[in-house]
Structures are given as structure tokens and as C-alpha cells.
Simulated scan of single mutants.
Amino acid sequence: MTLIEEIINEKSITTGTVAFRMLLSVVVSAIVGIEREYHKQPAGLRTHILISMGATLIMLLSIYIPQTFSQYKPADPGRLAAQVVSGIGFLGAGAIMKFGFNVKGLTTAASIWVIAAIGLAIGAGMYWATAIATGILLFALIFLDLFEKWIFPSKFIKHLSVYSSAGFNLKTDPILELLKKHKANVRTIDIEQSFDEKRTSLYFVIQISEKVKINTLSEEIGEIEGVQKIKLNQIV
């Protein structure tokens, strides 16, 4: 039996199992974090690594305490680790609130919650559960995202930012007319007025078909009188 096999099969917490499980936690969470980083989410590579490592360490500690201090029985190894489940909710809520205008960021919040659970599984030495859960998580984040956009093309959500010197009129604004022309469903509008710069910042969350040519839409918005700058980003 090789050293790696001995470490994998080891049930007690030793220096070898701690090092192996912490390293595995980094690798698994880095894969998921890179995917979130690619989609420019606030909870990206470093966040997922730190969450998973923290959950793994807490799980290791939960097992180590009753194993080492057996005189303090009865001891519940799951009691300390259980606090991760409720505590991770604060980070998940932060990921949702980061997007501001509507209920967005739920996918990232869910990935944070799942990566914490995976970290606990690694800490407990549940390697097959870790592999299966990681595979399903990546499948949901990557392939189901592509499938959803293909099967529900009108569910393409974008964040449109427009900076204009012409102000904004909710009833007759040409930006709204243009979005209506392209059959874009405006879900939310947020307006910021800068009196010093004499500029109005408009933030739209729009639901639009992928059949719409984004470059054409951006050019047409840019041609509207008073528009100084626009940004059109995907929300995942």
C-alpha cells in the first residue's frame, strides 16, 4: 500500500491526512472558483478557496477534538461542523445583495453554500462524495447554463448601464423606446443623478432574446442624443 493510499484510508486525524485533505480542498474549490471568476462574479477564485478550506479545517477539528480528548465524552463531531451550514448564509446573502437591483446572484450564493458542504465532506474523508458533488456542481454551473440559454433564449438577462446628460423621462425616454423596439423586457431601473457633473446614471436590468444583436443595440443607444457612455454586461 502506497503512502497516498494509507493517507486516504486513514480514519484518524494525522499530519498526513490534514495536509492531504486541505490540499484537496484547495484544488476542488479552485476549479469551481475559476468558473465563477470567469463569469466576473464577486465570489470568485479566492473566496471559494477560503470557504472550502475553512469548512475542511472545521470538519477536521470536529473529528480531532473527540479523538484526542476522549476523557471529555460524550462528544459530538458534527456539532462544530454544523455551524458552517448556518454561518455560510451570511456570505451567500452578501453575494445576492452585491447585484443590488433585483434577486440576482442566487447561482453564486448557491455555489458558495455547496462548496462549503464539499469542504466539510473533504474534511470528513468522504472522497467519493466530494468527487460526485464537485462533478454535479460544475455540470450545473457550466452545462446547465448553456442548456438554459439554448432552451429559454428569452431568459437572457443583461445589466445595461447608460450615462447621459439628457436626463430621464419614464414615459417618453428614447432609451425605453429603443428597448421596446428590440422587444427587451425592462425588469428594473435605478437612477442616480450627479448634479456636479450634470450627468444621469441609468442602470437597467433587461430580459432580452439572444437573437438580438447586442452590438447593434449598443450602437443605437450610443447614437441617442445626450448619451455619453454605455455598458452592457451579462448577469449570471
Rank of each mutant, 00 (worst) to 15 (best):
P74H: 05
K180P: 00
N102P: 02
G87N: 09
V28M: 11
E35S: 09
E219M: 12
A19K: 06
S209Q: 11
Q228I: 11
I230A: 04
Q83L: 15
I191D: 03
T172S: 12
I175A: 11
S201F: 07
L61K: 08
S86T: 11
E210F: 08
A43G: 09
I34P: 05
T47E: 01
H159C: 03
G54Y: 05
Q228A: 14
I58K: 07
G16V: 02
E225S: 12
A121C: 06
K211Y: 00
S70D: 07
E6D: 05
G94W: 01
M59D: 10
F168G: 09
R79K: 12
S12H: 04
S86Y: 01
H182P: 00
I221D: 02
Q193T: 11
F20R: 14
R187H: 09
G78L: 09
A131N: 07
L50V: 06
S62T: 00
E225Q: 11
I118Q: 12
A140H: 02
T68P: 03
Q234Y: 12
G89H: 02
L120A: 08
G33L: 06
I65C: 13
L23S: 14
I136E: 05
S70E: 03
A129E: 13
R36A: 06
A93H: 11
I142Y: 05
K231V: 01
V205D: 11
S164V: 04
I142A: 06
G54K: 12
L160R: 08
G54T: 04
T216K: 07
I112C: 13
A81T: 03
I230P: 02
I224C: 06
A75S: 13
V18N: 12
I88V: 14
L170W: 00
S209C: 06
R79F: 05
E37F: 01
N185E: 13
E35G: 10
L60T: 10
S194G: 03
T200N: 08
G94Q: 04
A55C: 06
S154F: 13
K40M: 10
K40W: 01
L202G: 10
A110S: 13
A75V: 08
D145S: 11
T134L: 13
W128T: 15
L202P: 08
G119I: 00
K229E: 10
L60V: 05
T2H: 12
R187I: 09
T200E: 06
K229H: 12
K229R: 13
V114F: 02
S161E: 10
V32W: 02
V26M: 15
N215M: 07
K181S: 01
N102A: 14
L202H: 07
I51N: 10
T200P: 09
E10I: 00
V162D: 04
M22A: 15
L24Y: 01
I175E: 04
R36W: 03
I175L: 12
A140G: 01
T130R: 14
L91I: 08
I63H: 09
S161R: 15
L50E: 07
L57S: 15
K11V: 03
I224G: 07
V205H: 13
N102W: 13
L176D: 02
V227G: 11
G125W: 00
F195T: 04
V114H: 06
T130K: 12
Y64V: 00
Q67Y: 01
F156W: 14
